[in-house]
Amino acid sequence: MPVGALEKRKAYLAMGGIGVVCAACYLGLSLQLPQGRLDQPGPGVFPIVVGVLLTLASLVTIWEGWQLDRREQIAMPVGSDLRRLLGLIALLFGFLIAMPIVGYIVSSALFCILLMRILSDLSWPRVLAYSLAMCAALYGAFVSFLKVPMPRGIWDFWQ
């Protein structure tokens, strides 16, 4: 099975860099919060401590990345493995965007059908049958029995 690789050093440096930027923004916002006095600390005191901690942690990440051997690699998916992974992420995005619009039932059924198709080479009728059975079971358990009010979207008029 083909496996791609990513240089661990670069990944650590990038992660640390993102951390430093986040920490700087977070500290900037924290300084705008009411600080109070030392005997009456305001809501801005703790975030400043956390911002400093995040800065230090990000700098440690950069330092560790700097020390890493360039030959150290992280295994990354390629080929069909990568396609499946990206397929899952894309379907999830679609599922979550569609859920408030077309409702939980339709979006979850579509998600299951398409994900099952990506993960297997089953025929469409079997994929449809399995997915609909699964969605019906989940709907019965959570929406009908446990009364979880999942979004109904455009079907909201239907009581």
């Binding site: 859920m99 989940l138 959570f142 979880v148 009010p149």
Partner: peptide, 22 residues
Amino acid sequence: YIFLPLIVVLAVIGSYSVRNSI
């Protein structure tokens, strides 16, 4: 291909159901 879609949908329901928030 059966248990993965099932777990993902369960996870979505679990995340949504605490505050009923998308």
